[in-house]
Nucleic acid binder design. Structure first.
Lengths: 116, 116
DNA sequence: CTAACGTACAACCAAATGGTTGTAGATGGG
DNA sequence: CCCATCTACAACCATTTGGTTGTACGTTAG
């Protein structure tokens, strides 16, 4: 997963309204206007939240007549969990050879020699 | 975990620089100025990123002389994972534990026989 | 003591975020 | 067809975010 994808994923999750939308849309069948009745904000504001979730890959939209049905992607949490796993794996794998990397300047980084 | 705590947690994770700081500080012993040498930005900017991570409970700081050593909280990822679990648990409660299972295996549409 | 280092923090700025209202385009019902 | 509904999107505004620079303060080295 790219850095930007992880950015979008965690950013989308970092808002209580959006997390609530995710919970409400697991069953699908929720139109955006129906959703917007649940929150103390305008239809357009909810539309924007849904757009953020969609760009993050957390929900999908499906047309039914003039309505747009929102559905939480069942694998959404799995992907977020994987992003956390990659974070954790990265640091565990790096731990033993970290000290050299830390001491170096990005400018004059020469992997063949280093403090030890 | 409160909504605000989850907000702070995911917001802190939604930035590539901050995720990199987490990776670099697992071993501890990194001063903020040492850290700031690794990024193309000012010391003050890195200081702010560390503050965001600290408010989210992802790192702790410890004084050593005039330095401030940053260390990633070993339980940090665990807490993020728990936040995801709570999200998912809320789904299950609302869904009556059916739709996700059905989506995976349309064949086993008998809930009395499903796993779990 | 003085100088250099590491940190803290304030002031400032551009861009993004989260909200609003208004307008316009599809779609379905009578 | 006409109208109400649902959606899309633009323009606008206040606040936050992510960066900068500058200044002040504590600590260590000489």
């Amino acid at each position: 997963m790219s850095d930007e994808a992880v950015d979008r994923l965690f950013h989308a999750l970092a808002d209580a309204t959006r997390r609530d939308i995710l919970r409400r849309c697991v069953r699908g069948g929720m139109s955006v206007s129906r959703l917007s009745e649940a929150y103390p904000m305008s239809f357009a504001a909810v539309q924007k939240h849904v757009a953020v979730l969609e760009r993050a890959g957390l929900v999908t939209k499906q047309r039914r007549g003039r309505e747009q049905l929102v559905r939480t992607d069942p694998d959404a949490v799995g992907r977020a969990r994987q992003a956390l796993d990659e974070l954790e794996t990265a640091w565990r794998g790096r731990v033993d050879r970290m000290s050299r990397l830390l001491a170096e300047d990005p400018e004059k980084s020469d992997p063949t020699e280093g403090p030890d």
